[in-house]
Write a protein that binds this DNA or RNA. Structure first.
Lengths: 246, 246
DNA sequence: CGCAACCTTGATTCTGATCAATAAAGGTGG
DNA sequence: CCACCTTTATTGATCAGAATCAAGGTTGCG
């Protein structure tokens, strides 16, 4: 990956940045004066590669930066006192990692790459500088954080109220939509996580995930070939979700 | 409640503000100059009473303000597409409501008072003004929002991994601690919510909540008299939580 | 090629949900 | 203040969904 692609002075926005939540920082909109632009230019550091299986940060490490996924796929996991841990999210291109670290000044979860990936690093200290120069940026970040809160609360709803089939359907449809937004096929994709990781995220055991996928396949709603999923009747999955406890 | 109590120029901080997350706004610390103080003074609007059962905001209403609970007790509930809804949080004095509304400009949950309450209103537009004057305030708010993310993720862990007994134990210990921080008894308190609301929050049915409380009582760990709870052996509850799936 | 990790499927168990009945509490209006 | 009614809580019996235990198969990596 050459530097050219990430130079902020380029007029065009690189393709993988099209969905990035930090786009406004990396590729500022017209309307800012030269001085402000110069400040923005300093916000994002060099991009950084993360190999599959490596962690971007770990619980307890000092919080210094937020990270936007540039390419690849990550999971975050939260460990509790007795050693159990849970996947709290899957993150793909353009999504932001590390927000939980701001409060305590330490990351509160582990972020692990599920395939070879690249991230853009946003040192948090730079953000404070930017906000002093361009106060509207503060609101931009409040919105990003608010969106993460909404995401988490929807997940709580899923974990608290839904049955295994519904959880999996919600997950597949959500993943499908996010892939589509990034220009990938909505109905034909590769799961980047294991059944166990997926189960952990959904509050299910891996056997239940496997069985439920098989059941969906039997219904003819999708085709499972290991990690390769093809949605044949996404509307049937949608119906499952919308129905009041079928 | 007279205005005197809330005047920002008072040297002493009112008692119920002692734990408030907005304390820094209402009762600024030394080190700010006169102009900055004047700005802060405009941030918090008049306090506002909310009667038991009334809602502070509802899903879909235009987001304009954050609210800090001044006195009383609130729940927030999230409704999903098929009509089921879930309690996403309980909020007591000093805690902040409405953060999920920032992103979309609409509240995404309902906030309902579970007893006669008072809130301090923080119009979000004022916050943007403050940040322009005192940039360090932006970080202060990032931390508040980050704390909410951490809270939600811990809840996800509970909903995804814990058994009914553990969930209830975690809840009781957490409530106990928050009450103690506010100067109330840690081991003798009144539940403000019904068994159903508590169950919804914990991802359980009301019968399960009732049964589990009865079981705790049989063990001698606590005493239940309707909504009046006395913790007799909080350490036993703690042990239940810390143990790897007893 | 061989081993380890991952996935599928079956049998059984267990936790919590559901259905049901009763009791107790709290609010309302006379 | 009391009687009534509605809401809320407790407890029991049964059921269902997912966990657990177990075995066998597949993949892919070293």
């Amino acid at each position: 990956m050459t530097n050219i692609i990430h130079q902020h002075t380029e007029c065009t926005v690189p393709r993988m940045c099209g969905n990035c939540v930090l786009q406004l920082l990396c590729h500022p909109q017209p309307g800012l004066d030269a001085e402000q632009l110069a400040d923005l230019d300093k916000v994002i550091q060099e991009t950084r590669p993360v190999k599959k299986g490596q962690s971007l940060f770990r619980t307890g490490e000092r919080f210094q930066s937020l990270f936007a996924v540039r390419t690849g796929f990550f999971k975050t996991t939260l460990a509790n006192s007795d050693g159990r841990d849970q996947v709290t999210g899957f993150f793909m291109s353009g999504e932001l990692l590390g927000l939980e670290g701001i409060d305590a000044g330490q990351y509160r979860s582990d972020a692990v790459a599920l395939e070879d990936s690249e991230v853009c690093e946003l040192p948090f200290a730079n953000l404070e500088g930017i906000v002093a120069e361009v106060p509207s940026m503060a609101t931009y970040f409040y919105k990003l954080m608010s969106r993460e809160i909404v995401r988490d609360q929807n997940l709580m709803m899923m974990l608290g109220n839904m049955r295994a089939e519904e959880r999996l359907a919600v997950f597949l449809l959500n993943l499908s939509q996010r892939l589509q937004l990034r220009g990938f096929s909505a109905n034909d994709f590769i799961l980047r996580m294991s059944r166990e990781e997926l189960g952990s995220y959904l509050g299910l055991k891996l056997e239940t995930v496997s069985r439920t996928l098989s059941r969906f396949q039997q219904e003819g709603w999708l085709k499972v070939e290991h990690k390769h999923i093809r949605l044949l009747q996404p509307e049937s999955l949608q119906a499952l979700v919308s129905q009041p406890a079928a």
